[in-house]
């Protein structure tokens, strides 16, 4: 059976991608950002999964105009990097895993998520910058990637609680996939930032660090995160800080408790506070049946 072996959370600032692509990672401005990713780059060498389920948001590159899905899963064999107005990033084509993606989509619909399947999407910096941060600049990405795009822009976006439940359902779906493969779930975007209006440039280190702290905690900490409203995110962490809901999908997919292997926080990269975590599901005797029953009861 497939297993979820780790979770990664990271910002996906486009300027970070540009710094990598233009060879500026050692610049004074950028060196402290990239220092925070040395751990994961070394760690992932021994922990390369077969597939990454990469939760990100499309930034009006492939969706948001004619089609605005709440949750969309990428079901193609390959995904080309998007041209966001300066030409596509010089990174490898992203190779999908249609079989697992189809399985997950099926399980999610059975679990009453109204998923949209995308058979043809270009993937923008929200997806490719995290890959670059973790895997560097290889000829080919070392694993398959299933894009899972979340609407964080057009209101109303899905709630923190809905994203949490989606993460739980993804875990259940992966764990009943018959092949013996290792799967990581990544949550990207954030941390606090606002890219519009007179309040642009907002950075909220207190909010961000409390978020990271609770993310690493057990159910007490995470239940507080699930209660953050859309309005809270906007007020406290900026209009684009709400991207952090994607970290909750990742976190929920880890199960109730985690071991945090790495945490990093830095201000700024361009307009944004940068956050990054690596975590593993805590080894535990999972009272699996009881847990599933409990969740079933709330699913009506």
């Amino acid at each position: 059976m497939a297993r979820i072996t780790a979770g990664i959370g990271t910002s996906h600032v486009p300027a970070i991608g540009a710094a990598i692509d233009l060879g500026r990672t050692a610049d004074d401005y950028w060196a402290p950002v990239f220092a925070g990713y040395e751990f994961v780059k070394a760690w992932v060498k021994d922990n390369t999964p077969d597939v990454v389920i990469l939760c990100y948001n499309d930034h009006a590159s492939a969706m948001m105009l004619d089609i605005v899905p709440t949750f969309a899963i990428g079901f193609a064999e390959e995904f080309e990097p998007a041209d966001e107005g300066w030409g596509p990033r010089p990174v490898p084509t992203v190779i999908g895993h249609p079989d697992l993606a189809g399985h997950i989509a099926e399980q999610l619909v059975i679990d009453e998520f109204d998923i949209t399947i995308m058979n043809d999407i270009a993937v923008d910096h929200g997806l490719t910058v995290p890959l670059s941060l973790v895997f560097g600049q290889p000829e080919e990405w070392p694993c398959k990637v299933i894009p899972l795009a979340v609407n964080v822009t057009q209101f109303p976006t899905p709630s923190a609680e809905r994203c949490w439940k989606l993460g739980e359902a993804i875990r259940d779906a992966v764990e009943c996939y018959p092949e013996d493969i290792e799967v990581q779930v990544w949550g990207t975007g954030g941390m606090s930032h606002q890219l519009q209006g007179p309040r642009a440039g907002l950075i909220a280190p207190e909010f961000d660090n409390a978020f990271l702290e609770r993310l690493a905690a057990g159910p007490d900490g995470t239940s507080e995160l699930r209660g953050i409203t859309r309005l809270d995110f906007l007020r406290e962490a900026g209009t684009e800080g709400i991207e952090l809901i994607m970290w909750l999908i990742m976190r929920a997919a880890m199960g109730p408790n985690v071991d945090e292997l790495h945490r990093f926080y830095h201000v700024p990269a361009s307009n944004t506070a940068v956050g990054h975590v690596v975590m593993k599901p805590k080894a535990q005797f999972r009272h699996k049946l009881g847990e599933v029953e409990a969740r079933k009861a709330t699913a009506a």
Partner: peptide
């Protein structure tokens, strides 16, 4: 931004 960005306090 380099000095830590705009504080949300009061905003």
């Amino acid at each position: 931004m380099s000095a830590g960005g705009r504080s949300p306090e009061g905003l």
